[in-house]
Simulated scan of single mutants.
Amino acid sequence: MYSKNRQNCSKGILSLPYRLFEINHINGVVINPTTEPTMNRKRFFGNTIFHLPLNWNKKYRLFETNRSFLQGIKHLSKFFKFSDKSPIITDGKIQKLMVKLGLIQTTSYESNQKGIAQVSKTIKKLGQKETKIVCLPEQWLKNNIIKDFDSEFLEFKKIARDFSMTIIPGAFYEIGKNTSIIAPVIGPEGEFIGRQEKIHPFDYERDSVKPGNEAKIFKTSCKFGIIICYDMVFPNVANVLAKKGAQVLFSPSRIVRRGIVPWEMYVQVRALENRIPILAANVENRRFGGNSIIVDLTEDNKVVTTKITKLKGASEKSKEFILEKYEKSRKSRFADSNKFQ
């Protein structure tokens, strides 16, 4: 597995044949490097095993006694291209890992079976690109009253397990003692790990749908919340999720064509208000207007603006995020809020 020169080192794989570094994270800073002769033992740095070339100590002299471990890693980054899972080194600190998050925009399908079969191919494609969480729209199937989620989304569960990814299959009617609209969550082990109920049923839905009463946090590759379609209109939903610790928000939606412009405004404003990225999935067909949207945030001299990616047609998109980078701005924004009557 060892490579003797940097040209032959595979992307993100650096071997540790001679030394073992115990790594601890305290506020993003790596401390307490130790050495120990070893040929076989490995240590994880985040989720990535780093392998250095066999002659790393002689050739690059990375970890002399007057060099800290962090300086060595910085020096190392000049010679090797780290993988997308590798830590990002900025401002003298090692930040948390990147996570790749994705959306799928669906269209009309002849049956649930055909729709799920088609979308399963798309989810696999995202899984092959190491997408860790993917979200689908609200009520995108032919029949959106789901009697048995386990059997209906059996293929999704297999894909989640095979690619260690989290899948939000959308939001659907669940008929029981009470009728609800729920967004189930399939975890990376291929099992349902929870559900988010729609808190604000829309218009005609209010006649039959019981509103949810809790904004929930889920934790797999990161901490996230789910905002189902019309819930995006109400600022408190996104705000409560952000204050509960969500690092990103997903929104299974089904927005008619004439509603696309205000919907895009709502999604961007919720992202700005709470300093949090949002990925909102929509259906595109004759009635529903597509334009699924990924809202990222950029900051320039304390001014935060949105950076938008839109989907067209039946398609998918994934994007890498370093979710820690929004935390300082989010805390500052919440601290600025004053109580009033």
Score class of each variant (00 low, 15 high):
residue 249 L to N: 10
residue 152 E to K: 04
residue 181 I to G: 09
residue 291 N to M: 14
residue 196 Q to R: 06
residue 109 Y to N: 01
residue 14 L to M: 10
residue 171 A to S: 14
residue 276 I to G: 11
residue 257 R to A: 07
residue 97 L to Y: 04
residue 294 I to E: 03
residue 171 A to R: 02
residue 157 K to V: 03
residue 210 K to T: 15
residue 170 G to K: 02
residue 216 K to V: 12
residue 16 L to V: 12
residue 336 D to R: 15
residue 15 S to L: 14
residue 52 L to S: 09
residue 130 E to R: 09
residue 92 G to Q: 08
residue 156 F to S: 02
residue 198 K to F: 00
residue 14 L to F: 14
residue 245 G to F: 01
residue 160 A to R: 02
residue 255 I to W: 08
residue 43 R to I: 13
residue 30 V to F: 14
residue 263 W to I: 00
residue 16 L to P: 00
residue 236 N to P: 01
residue 178 N to S: 12
residue 309 T to K: 14
residue 52 L to A: 14
residue 253 S to P: 07
residue 61 R to I: 11
residue 6 R to P: 00
residue 101 L to T: 09
residue 119 V to N: 02
residue 285 N to H: 04
residue 108 S to H: 04
residue 198 K to G: 03
residue 242 A to E: 04
residue 194 G to W: 00
residue 84 D to A: 10
residue 208 S to W: 07
residue 185 V to G: 04
residue 186 I to V: 12
residue 188 P to L: 00
residue 33 P to Y: 08
residue 103 L to M: 12
residue 88 I to Q: 10
residue 285 N to R: 03
residue 48 T to G: 00
residue 130 E to M: 09
residue 212 G to H: 06
residue 132 K to T: 13
residue 259 G to F: 14
residue 92 G to S: 10
residue 170 G to T: 06
residue 326 Y to T: 11
residue 79 F to Q: 03
residue 220 T to E: 15
residue 325 K to T: 06
residue 321 F to K: 01
residue 195 R to E: 09
residue 5 N to L: 05
residue 306 T to A: 12
residue 90 T to S: 12
residue 259 G to S: 14
